[in-house]
Amino acid sequence: MSKWKFHNPVKIHFGSGSINNLSALIGSRKSLLITTPGSTKRGTTSLVRDLLGNSLVAVFDEVEPNPTLSSVLAVSKNIRRLMFDNIIALGGGSALDTAKTFAAVDASGNEGGLADQLNHKFSYPKNFTPKPIIAIPTTAGTGSEVTMWGTIWDMVAKQKHSIEHPLLYPEQAILDPDLTITLPRDETIFSALDAISHAMESIWNKNHNPISDIFAIEAISIIYDYLPQLLD
Rank of each mutant, 00 (worst) to 15 (best):
V57F: 02
H198P: 13
T101A: 11
L22M: 07
S197H: 00
A99D: 07
L168C: 05
H120W: 11
D116C: 04
L22G: 07
S191V: 01
P125V: 06
S55G: 14
S28W: 00
G38W: 00
S144W: 04
I34E: 04
M200Y: 11
L73K: 10
A74K: 15
T142N: 09
H165P: 09
T101F: 00
G93I: 10
L118T: 08
A192N: 12
N66F: 01
T129Q: 12
S31P: 12
P177N: 10
I163S: 00
T138C: 11
N78K: 07
F84C: 13
G17R: 05
I134V: 14
D97A: 03
S202M: 09
I133W: 03
D186V: 10
D225G: 04
G17T: 13
S31N: 11
A95N: 01
E111F: 13
T40H: 05
T45Y: 06
S31W: 14
F14W: 08
G38V: 00
I12T: 09
S28H: 10
T129F: 11
L193H: 06
S162A: 14
I181P: 00
H198G: 15
F14V: 08
T98L: 06
L69K: 05
T36A: 03
H13Y: 15
I133K: 01
I196C: 15
P9K: 11
V105N: 05
I220G: 06
N127K: 12
S2T: 03
P130R: 08
G141V: 07
D106F: 07
K206T: 15
L51Q: 04
D186K: 15
N54Q: 14
P184W: 03
P37E: 05
R81H: 13
N119A: 15
S70R: 01
A104G: 06
Y226M: 12
M200I: 07
N66P: 01
W4R: 12
I19N: 01
V63A: 07
G53D: 08
G43P: 15
G27A: 08
S162V: 06
V63D: 04
A199N: 13
N21I: 03
F14C: 06
T35Y: 00
I12F: 12
I211N: 08
L33H: 06
D225M: 11
I174D: 01
H198I: 07
D176H: 06
Q229D: 09
A216Q: 03
S23R: 14
T188M: 14
W204D: 13
L167K: 15
I189H: 05
D194T: 02
N127F: 02
A140S: 15
A219W: 00
L96H: 01
R81D: 15
L47H: 12
N119I: 02
R81I: 04
V146D: 02
G15M: 02
F102A: 00
S144V: 04
R185I: 02
P132I: 03
F215S: 05
K30G: 00
M1W: 05
D154A: 05
P9G: 09
D85Y: 13
I203N: 11
A74C: 09
G15Q: 02
D232L: 11
A195N: 12
V63Q: 01
T36S: 09
P177C: 10
K131N: 03
L82T: 02
T44K: 10
I223E: 05
L175P: 00
L227M: 14
P37N: 08
H198V: 12
V63N: 04
S31R: 08
G141E: 03
G17L: 12
S162Q: 06
M200S: 01
